[in-house]
Amino acid sequence: MSIIDIIRRGKKLKLFIFIGIPMIYLLIFFFIPFLIAFLYSLGMFKQVVYQYVFVPEPSLEYYSGLMKFPGIFKSIQRSFYYASLTTLGTFLISYPLTYYIGVKLEEKYRDLAVLIIFTPFWINFLLRVYAMRFILHEAGMINLILRLIGIISEPIKFLGTDTAVIIVMIYSYLIFMVLPLYGVLEKLDVELLEAAATLGATPFKAFIKITLPLSLPGILAGSLLVFIPAVGEFVIPELVGGPNTTTLGTIIYSFFLRVRGVTGWGIGSAAALIYIVLILVASYVYMKFVGGEVRLG
């Protein structure tokens, strides 16, 4: 065997280690379970006592069961509503924030500023969301401050409402928008803006024509990172919401963990499948719409 052959084999080994092993991991922990869930949703895979039975006749029984579930369409709609507002809210907060950190702030303070934004995320997610219950409570800090400065006389009831869910979701997902945006804005070449100014562009026009298009890859990545998990969010609507904040996520959660059994898992799997299809469609439309504008280098 020649040296070149050994090197070639070495290359193949590296490819296997760095791509093959993660792929095997995904196969075992994602694709196969996903296939099982798919079979479950079609009633083709059942657990009878301690036996797993494969039934070769697909049926849409669980899907129709899910469609008959009261408020299902409203919940799906609500999931997308929450996710859209969360994406928009995190974007509106993150863009100016990361712009000023990544472009305007002196370079030596940038890492520190990003670190400060990160600090809430050192605390356990459940704990953070749970703490928000106290802040949003009628006797909580927000109501207290609003009353002290005299904006309201009666406490506002946040908990159990859409507002509470969206506030907490924006707070929880913020970092997933901040990081990709910071990534593109920190690399923005300020000389491009100076060049635009020498060509007669006002700061606003330079922003629209240069900064915004060049940060589009970050906007795209950030909004997908926020939107996709936000559609499936179930902890936040459970903890700060109420009967009127059921989402697709809470429905999947309750079928799998509350209803359980063959039917619970069947309907839960059907809901998870619908969730995936909707996400794929929404992401595709979004990438077509926004991503079509993204042209790199």
Partner: peptide, 13 residues
Amino acid sequence: IGMVFQTLALFPH
């Protein structure tokens, strides 16, 4: 005025 920058600063997009 017009300016040609050292890095040229052409708009990459």
